Amino acid sequence: MEIFDITLPIHPEMLHWGRKPEVEIVESLANGDASNVTRWRLGAHTGTHVDAPAHFVDGATPVDKLDLHSLVGPAIVADLTAVTGDITVDDLTAAGVAGHKRVLLKTSNSAGPLKEVDRAPSWVGLSPEAAQWLIAEGVELIGIDYLTIESHTRTETWDAHHVLLGAGLIILENADLDGVPPGFYELVCLPAKLVDSDGSFARAILIKRDA
């Protein structure tokens, strides 16, 4: 069994949309305390994280009530590394996405913008039309390798988010797929159980089992 950890490390200098994480030392052995204790200040959408439908739809499913069957199970890592701009329906069909419930989009983001400490001026995102196609295909979880699945040209209207989350899909963002070959895996994606939250940071792994 081979395990690929697709989770970004969380630390104060990491790539982040907005305010970066902060760490406070509450207790330390060096200061004569009984143990080392830290307090972290970070947003629900820090690092590798899950967007629940409640992120864009009031009254929709929050992250603590997501179906674990959608977060754990067979998944495809689709090769979209040749795509520039928006991922289209044609790109998804060519990558063999049809028929899969859990889809991770490996793009040029993994080896490029995802490795930077500041937000890039542009990145590969999902077109609204492709988002609609994913819904029609019965996809339950869609992931991408950047801060957002949204195109850099639509971060004011958030079209793909409205389409996907409005239909109840789960979005996984900031999945580090740089070292993961395209193919078929078992996904285990477990967001923290933040009650009634719009999303949560998650530990996500891909498992390739021996034949």
Rank of each mutant, 00 (worst) to 15 (best):
V117F: 15
A60L: 06
G125F: 04
A52C: 10
D86P: 06
A52R: 03
L80I: 01
V77D: 01
L114S: 04
H55R: 14
F56V: 14
T48M: 03
D86E: 12
R41E: 13
P62M: 06
A120K: 10
T46I: 03
D79E: 00
V72H: 13
S110Y: 02
S108Y: 05
A54R: 11
D51R: 10
L71A: 10
R41M: 13
T93Q: 13
G59Y: 11
H69L: 13
L71N: 07
G47A: 08
S70M: 12
S70H: 14
F56T: 14
H100K: 03
D86V: 12
P53K: 01
P53Y: 08
A111N: 09
D67S: 07
H49D: 05
T107P: 01
L105H: 02
R102P: 04
G85K: 11
D67C: 07
L71H: 08
G85N: 10
V124R: 07
A98K: 10
V89Y: 06
S127R: 04
A52Y: 11
I76G: 00
N109V: 04
T46S: 11
T107K: 05
L68I: 15
V124W: 08
A98N: 04
L114Q: 11
V103S: 01
L66K: 10
R102S: 01
A60T: 04
S108G: 11
T46Y: 14
H55W: 13
A95K: 00
D91S: 05
S70P: 12
E116M: 14
S108K: 09
T61Y: 05
L104H: 05
T93N: 12
P113I: 12
K115E: 13
